[in-house]
């Protein structure tokens, strides 16, 4: 799998394409193509997750990212490979954008031992130490102090890493959000707090859960830098998050970024969605970031044929991930004690 950074920082020695297109434009198209590939992979993987869930092959809770892919993909494109990412239970997109193999993600959802968390975490708890994926967490807001902690460690060691912390607007009323932002601003920790505002918390619209409409205003009380924008263009997301990442890396200052997005599916698979109209969802789908990226790619000279080939390659990745998940073994009880404690079990 080609890393997005490798695309973004392709060296001039790379052979020029056959078309007499200027080098910069070609690289820009290749970069967007890579972001599109990630978004489309996430969407297709999740569509298949929904199918497997309906078939009873995936248990527990399943929170889909469909509609929000441009946030995770755009934001993570602004990172170094060794930077840290931490998020909520809606974590499939972040995991794949961070470079985790779709096979390992799908196997985890199936509860298989080949899953990224060996079948012990499930959909909500995707971890990968090698990729700097610090996991998805199930207590709303509870992971935000952890992000301040990994950023604290980076500053303590001077390793130059930045932590990206993702959460929904449903998290910004709870104390752990405020304590983490307060401490990150006080101690100047290299962390970017990304609020993915999909407007509905679980099923309650923002105006009924918050006294202000602009989430980014929460930064003001902490003297923290802030930003606020729509997630419809993945390149815009990357560009704006890069500003915050650069600020964190260069001056060790945190930022609160409110990214306005929309989930096309329910909060989880058990959500009947009675709190919004189908007209509203259809109107929002007109801003689908995947369609926008696809249109942009065509404008940049990518042919329908080229995009179809990419889509076909993604289908193969999805098919392979499902097959891997379905044929992998389950973990046995012997795994439980060694994963609970490091060293002998403390009984």
């Amino acid at each position: 799998m080609t890393r997005k950074k490798a695309v973004a920082e392709a060296t001039p020695s790379r052979p020029a394409p056959p078309h007499a297109e200027p080098e910069g434009e070609s690289e820009a198209a290749a970069h967007l193509l890579e972001l599109y590939r990630q978004m489309q992979t996430i969407r297709r993987i999740e569509e298949e997750c929904a199918r497997s869930y309906a078939q009873g092959k995936i248990g527990g809770f399943l929170h889909l990212y469909i509609g929000q892919e441009s946030v995770g993909v755009g934001a993570l494109a602004a990172l170094r490979p060794d930077d840290y990412v931490i998020g909520t239970y809606r974590d499939h997109g972040l995991a794949i954008a961070k470079g985790m193999p779709p096979r390992a993600v799908m196997a985890e959802l199936y509860g298989k031992v080949t899953g990224c968390s060996r079948g012990l975490g499930g959909s909500m708890h995707l971890f990968d130490v090698a990729h700097g994926m610090l996991g998805g967490y199930g207590i709303v807001g509870g992971h935000i102090p952890l992000a301040a902690g990994t950023a604290f460690a980076s500053k303590y060691r001077g390793d130059g890493r930045v932590t990206l912390c993702f959460f929904g607007e449903g998290s910004v009323s709870i104390g752990s959000f405020h304590e983490a932002l307060s401490l990150a601003a006080l101690w100047k920790l290299p962390c970017v707090f990304i609020c993915e505002n999909n407007e509905y918390s679980m099923g309650t619209p923002l105006q009924r859960t918050m006294s202000v409409e602009d989430v980014s205003q929460k930064a003001l009380a902490y003297g923290m830098a802030r930003d606020r924008f729509f997630a419809r263009d993945v390149l815009e997301v990357e560009h704006r998050i890069r500003e915050a990442v650069d600020r964190a890396r260069e001056t060790s200052e945190p930022t609160l970024v409110e990214v306005r997005t929309y989930r096309f599916r329910g909060h989880s698979m058990s959500d009947p969605g009675k709190y919004r109209t189908s007209e509203e969802i259809e109107a929002q789908k007109k801003h689908d970031p995947l369609n926008r990226a696809r249109d942009q790619l065509k404008t940049m000279g990518k042919s329908e044929d080229e995009l179809a080939k990419l889509d076909a390659a993604i289908e193969e990745v999805v098919r392979d991930a499902i097959e891997h998940a379905e044929t992998s073994p389950e973990p046995g009880p012997e795994i439980l004690e060694e994963t609970t404690y490091s060293g002998p079990f403390a009984r």
Binding site: S117, G121, V129, I335, T339
Partner: peptide
């Protein structure tokens, strides 16, 4: 530790 499959 447990929910990361022993990774962390």
């Amino acid at each position: 530790r447990q929910m990361s499959g022993g990774q962390f």
